[in-house]
Amino acid sequence: MKTLSENIKSGIDYASLSRKNRSRDIIFASLGIIVLFIAITTLVALFLDLAVRGAPRLTDPDFYTSFPSRRPLDAGILSAWVGTIMVMLVTAVIAVPLGIAAGLYLEEYAGKNWLTDVIEVNVSNLAGVPSIVYGLLALGLFVQTFGMGETVLVAGLVLSLLILPIIIVSTREAIRSIPNELREAAYGLGANQWQTMAMYIIPAAKPGIITGAIVGLSRAIGETAPIITIGALSFIAFLPQSPVSGDFPFISFEWLNSGFTVMPIQMFGWVSRPQADFQITAAAAGVVLIVMTLMMNALAIYIRYRARK
């Protein structure tokens, strides 16, 4: 007399079941590898294509130290990379502290009521707003209403607006991932809210916060649309005034009000030229921009790696 469970078990073919499951594993794994392969080869092919086409200019040291020129083989990216660095500097100085502070406030200080709910939904949605819309906002607000002109400062401001939601959201997530036990440990010792934040929560969340900030900045570095919208120039044969000078007071902020161009715009300008040689220059600039972005991402990974140790 078999028991019920023995009856059920006798109907199961363990060997074929395990074979079936194994073959499912193999199918899924191979599918994954194929998809991964397609994605990576596409990226690598694009990058290699750019690098090969841009090689004549990339290997020329003058490319990095010359201003753009009407003659494609003399054209360089000096004003573009200097402009990119300056704009990124402004963006970082504005967006990073503001975004982190806003994230901290929303996560730890703000009460839970309808107003913070509205803000929360808005912040998440802002992250998905097309960048050209930010460009239009900046054109109307900073350039026309405030009359600030097409300057490094305005470009930094618009990119800051663009990446603020990214930094806010990633800051909140980094803080939320800190276990509640840590919070209670700090409060349990008599720490007030500020001490708990500054001494325990922020240091523990720091890798996540910094990674979020860098991811935001590396999004900003490649943005073209909003910068074009505010009217950045694509042909510039001068550098903004140096921020440090030999004369008193040694530091100048004149560069903030300077006209500028950035790497993506410089590329865009060259791509739209009829001469074939400008395509080489554009490809070379593309490689430099990708390397700049990769370097920022590598920094983010390095920081995360170091913090995990």
């Binding site: 720490a191 007030n192 325990y200």
Partner: peptide, 18 residues
């Protein structure tokens, strides 16, 4: 805050700071 300065606590799960 003053209460917690005067009354110490040890939790269920060890929770040293990192």
């Amino acid at each position: 805050n003053i209460v917690r300065m005067r009354v110490g606590m040890v939790f269920q799960k060890p929770n040293p700071f990192p």
